[in-house]
Amino acid sequence: METSIIFAVAIIFFVLIIIIKGVKIVPQSDLYVIERLGKFNKELHGGFHLIIPIIDQVRAILTSREQLVDIEKQSVITKDNVNISIDGIVFCKVDDAMEATYNVVDFKNAIANLAMTTLRSEIGGMDLDDTLSNRETLNAKLQNELGSAAANWGIKVTRVEISDISVPAEIERAMNMQMEAERSKRAVETKARADKEAVIRKAEGFKQEEILKAEAIERMADAKRYEQEQMAAGQQEAMRLINISMMENEKAAEFLLAKDRIAAFRALAESGSTDKMILPYDVAQMVGATSVLGDAFFKGVSNANSNNS
C-alpha cells in the first residue's frame, strides 16, 4: 500500500514537472527561441505558450527592446594625417530572433567591432575639418554601413551617434588660432563692406540732394517765368484797354497824364528834401516860355554885334 502511494506521488510529481516544463509564459518585450531535438522550431513572443517538455528546449532569450552598443574610444588617423580619438554609440534592436541566435555568436560584440572598423575606414577618407563639421553625414554613413551588415544577423540599426571627437592639444591650439584669424578676417571684411556701403549711401544721398535742388531751381524758374508771362499778359491787356479807351474818348490820355503828374507831385511833396519848389502847371508853362524868349533875345544880340564888327 505504501509502495503504491509513493509510486502515485512520484507519477504526480513527474507530471507536474512535465507540465511546468511545457508551459512558457513569455514577457511582452522578450523573444524565446525554441529548438526541437537540437533544431530551430519556432519563435515565441509575449504571452502564454505550450511546448513539448524534453523534446523542445529554450535555446535563447532575447529582448525586442532597443539596445545600446557602446563604441569604445579609439585612435583614428584622418586623411590629412591627424591622429584623433573618437567614440560613439549604436542603437539597435532584434528584428529576427532566429538570425540573431544562429547567424552570429554575439551580435553586440560584432556590431561594436564592425562599427570601429567602419569608423576607421570612413574617417580615413575625410579631412579633419570635414570630420568635425560633418558629424551628421558621418553618422548617416555609419548607420548605412552597419545596417547593411547587421541585417544578416537579424538586427536593425536604428541610430548611430558620434559622441566625442578629441584632437591633440597642439592641433587644438592651431585650430583656435585659425578660428581667431578667420574671425578677424571676417571682422575686417565686414567693416570694409560697411564702410563701402556708407560711402555709397552718402554719395546717393548727395546725389538725391543735388537732384532735389535742381528740381527746386527748375520749379522756381518755371514759377518766375509764369509770373512774368502773366504780368506781361496783364500789361498787354492793360495797354490794349488804354488804347481802346483813348480811341473812344479823347480826354483819356490827358486823364492818365494828369494822374501820373499828381502821383509825381505827391511823391515830391512827401520827400524830406528842403531844396524843392512846387509850382502850378500854368506857372511852369509860363516859366518855360520866358526861358525860350530869353534865349532867342540873347542869341539875336550876339548876332548883331558880330555883324557890326
Rank of each mutant, 00 (worst) to 15 (best):
R65Y: 06
E2C: 14
K251N: 04
V301F: 13
T290L: 13
D295P: 05
A203L: 15
Q178D: 12
D130I: 11
D56Y: 03
R240D: 13
A169P: 11
G234R: 06
M177F: 08
I20N: 08
V23P: 08
A169T: 14
D195T: 10
A263V: 01
P27C: 03
H49F: 10
E161P: 06
E170S: 12
N307I: 09
F91L: 00
V94S: 04
D56N: 04
V157T: 05
G288V: 00
K73V: 12
Q236G: 06
L31S: 09
L119H: 03
G288E: 13
Q143D: 02
R159E: 03
Q235F: 10
N152D: 14
G300C: 09
E172T: 11
A264Q: 07
N176R: 13
I278A: 14
N144V: 07
I77H: 05
I61C: 03
F91N: 04
P53N: 01
N103M: 10
V94A: 03
Y226A: 15
G88T: 01
F265V: 14
I55V: 06
A264D: 01
V199Q: 15
S306C: 07
S184Y: 11
M126F: 08
M277K: 13
V160M: 01
A233C: 09
D129M: 14
L293N: 11
V58M: 05
T118F: 03
L138H: 05
R59P: 05
L114Y: 10
F13Q: 13
Y281E: 14
E122V: 09
A269H: 08
I11N: 03
I162W: 05
E254N: 00
K299D: 14
L16N: 00
E122N: 07
P53I: 00
V167M: 03
D129C: 09
T3Y: 08
Q230M: 04
N305D: 12
E72L: 03
M286N: 08
I171E: 07
V160P: 02
R261G: 06
G124Q: 06
K207L: 15
Y102M: 05
K202V: 12
K224F: 15
A150P: 02
I171Q: 05
F107T: 04
L241E: 07
D70G: 10
K156M: 02
T78F: 05
R135T: 07
A263N: 05
I84H: 05
D222F: 10
V9M: 06
E209F: 06
D275V: 07
D80V: 02
T290V: 13
Y32A: 01
G234Q: 09
V33F: 08
M220Y: 15
L132D: 02
N134S: 06
I244T: 08
L16K: 00
Y32N: 09
I200D: 12
N134I: 04
I171C: 00
A151R: 08
E229N: 15
V157G: 02
G154I: 02
F255E: 00
Y281K: 11
M231L: 13
E254L: 00
